[in-house]
């Protein structure tokens, strides 16, 4: 069963045609990485899938619920209630964390559970503490985000997303804002989630990581999907000259 199906997504900003008919389907439990050069539309695609941008044209459905349907080349979005329902099944981890700086780590993890999902405070805290243990951050529950390293902040951000029990988790370059020595701890967490069959879509520049963790890899360039295939097919036997050039540049 496809948890995410997107067909022929188009998105322009003014004259800038960023996405030119992108297809993406993700099965339950799959990890899909999206790679490609800067400005290829990776983040825009992710933002369209998480409702932070509205697509101009195309179909998107998540967890069997229609988010938008294409009618005569125009994306027609579902009603607010449906969009909100979809939103609650989706988690997003930002490049620059976007933790709430005025709240402690624990409150960052519990507030939305209580206020949005209506869980009791005790239940929310139990879930949060369990996640913090998994993130090896138990002793940080009373710290404020500004007291944490980048890697710790990103692990809190992942925990915050997971606390809402999403069915699919998106990552927008989760390690791009981190110092090199902090990248490992975040990738380790994502690896752990993959083992637990969390459905994930990851925009990343970490090629080795993408190759190792993904069930499928999408190569995006100038708003076009050049390839959507197994990691072996992309990394080992890249047939497309553009992909070969991109990967050889990275291996230098």
């Amino acid at each position: 069963m496809y948890l995410l199906e997107a067909k022929q997504i188009h998105k322009s900003f003014g004259d800038n045609h960023v996405l030119k008919g992108v297809d993406l389907s993700v099965e339950e439990g799959q990890v899909v990485s999206i790679i490609g050069p800067s400005g290829s539309g990776k983040s825009t695609l992710l933002r369209c899938l998480t409702q932070l941008e509205t697509a101009d044209a195309g179909d998107i459905s998540i967890c069997g619920m229609t988010m938008t349907e294409d009618r005569n080349g125009k994306a027609v979005y579902s009603d607010k209630a449906q969009l909100r329902k979809i939103m609650l099944d989706v988690g997003l981890v930002f490049q620059n964390f976007q933790l709430f700086p005025h709240w402690s780590v624990l409150r960052n993890l519990t507030d939305a559970q209580v206020r949005v999902l209506g869980r009791s405070k005790q239940e929310a805290e139990a879930i949060a503490r369990d996640l913090l243990t998994k993130m090896k951050l138990s002793e940080k529950e009373n710290a404020y985000p500004c007291q944490l390293s980048g890697g710790q902040q990103q692990r809190v951000a992942i925990a915050r997303a997971l606390a809402m029990s999403p069915k699919i988790l998106f990552f927008d370059e989760p390690t791009s804002a981190l110092d090199p020595e902090l990248i490992g701890e975040v990738l380790e967490i994502i690896r752990e989630l993959a083992k637990q069959d969390m459905t994930m879509v990851i925009v990343t520049h970490e090629m080795t990581f993408a190759r190792e963790i993904s069930d499928k890899v999408m190569f995006l360039e100038q708003g076009n999907v050049l390839a959507f295939d197994s990691p072996e097919a992309i990394f080992a036997n890249a047939s497309h000259p553009r992909i070969q050039a991109f990967l050889s540049l990275l291996n230098k």
Partner: peptide, 21 residues
């Protein structure tokens, strides 16, 4: 930062909740 509004939205907060909390 705009990202704070976006983080609020993705977590399911309404616009009013995001603004006030």
């Amino acid at each position: 930062p705009q990202g704070q509004y976006e983080a609020g939205k993705v977590l399911g907060y309404t616009r009013v909740q995001t603004f006030f909390h």
